[in-house]
Nucleic acid binder design. Sequence first.
RNA 1: GGUGAGGUGGCCGAGUGGCUUAAGGCGCACGCUUGGAAAGCGUGUAAACGGGAAACUGUUUCGGGGGUUCGAAUCCCUUCCUCACCGCCA
Length: 421
Amino acid sequence: MLHINKIRENKDSYIALLKLKNIDATDLFDSVIAKDNERKATQQQSDELLAKGNQFAKQIGEMYKTGKVAEANLLKEESALIKEESKALQTKQIELEKEIQSILVQIPNIPHPSVPKGKSDLDNRILKEVGKIPNLMKGAKPHWELTTDYNLIDFALGNKITGAGFPVYIDKGARLQRALISYFLDKNTAAGYIEYLPPHLVNEASGFGTGQLPDKEGQMYHANEDNLYLIPTAEVPVTNFFRNVIVDKFPIMCTAYTPCFRREAGSYGKEVRGLNRLHQFDKVEIVQVQHPNKSYETLDLMVSHVASILDELELPYKILQLCGGDLSFTSAITFDFEVYSAGQERWLEVSSVSNFESYQANRLKLRYKDGNGKTQLCHTLNGSALALPRIYAALIENNQTAQGIKIPKALQPYTGFDIIK
RNA sequence: GGUGAGGUGGCCGAGUGGCUUAAGGCGCACGCUUGGAAAGCGUGUAAACGGGAAACUGUUUCGGGGGUUCGAAUCCCUUCCUCACCGCCA
């Protein structure tokens, strides 16, 4: 959510930048500023009345003590009038605040000036392409066949006990999954991130804090009886650690492994085949809270951190800067990582690193004190480091040989084996 | 799940309708003191939203929401949470 004062200060440049997201915010901005002016005026009136009422209450107290009952009763009558009037003003104020809020939540984050123009993923800017696309042997297979051939994952078994999109990992297949989680966490903690293991269910307030609620309610699994939501990403519990917090140190670096639960209503077809899109999957997330002056420096560090992991895993990948049209509602700038999955001859998104600037922080009320002792909004950033299933798919597809599936060196200490036969 | 006790500032903790502008303590910051430090003494120490160039100032907030009253941390209703004991249980 944008802060109303920032809209006032930067209205014209915001309107220009939002065009990158193909949005004309002129009317929204005008109406929200007008409402805010009205809100201020209303508050001023209401504050004055309340101050008067407080004065009267004190005087009445004094009068009773000194026995001036008749005078007190007169003042009481006047008080009643003030009360009525101020109540009406307060109701109006709350109403206006609601209206302002409901406009503000409709306005997406302002894109960074470097964001390319564009409508869809076709307009994303390729920044870098690293590694060679492997030349697979004849008869190379997609991962959904390999996982069956080598008994790594049983999709049908998951289907039986839960439903589609809930795979069961078996034997070396399970071990590989566990190895990846440990490996990612170790890479992240070595880079200075503190490891957390948060709850996998969150309350309603947390859903609001990171913006899943109320808009994307249908994307989350909901435990009705207790009114708790299954997390769609570790970003939700971890970012909410900082809800209503005034921090005094930068940067704050967190990493967390969690399973992620997504209903993915409306998905279908080959996009969802095998591991490509699941209802439950594992992911290791990195989150940073940073001073506004440092957040873009941090963003670069996060991008190169993710790149270094993919380098070590010897996966061919490309880094894309998302165009305005593909940018998420809350992000100011996003870099996507895609790895090449040779068995299905596709690029798969495995990480998305974003700077939200103060957009999330405003909703969360995540602040720090500046040199003058004034509270200011922090910047928040997050990224996947990394999402497991598609890394898993690319790893086994790209490393399939006549002898079996080879495990990259960096992972071998974690798997305890160097080939799956 | 049952019964009981609670929720007050960064923390501890007093406060049963106006004497609270939330006592007192701890912590923190600054100053005095000191050769330096500790102790001691003094001053300051929440957030949100307004007004003001600023100094300063108004309103709201004692878990959340609602109510009674001229006036609520205090009384009433409701909801959430915490703790203790019991039951169940990895």
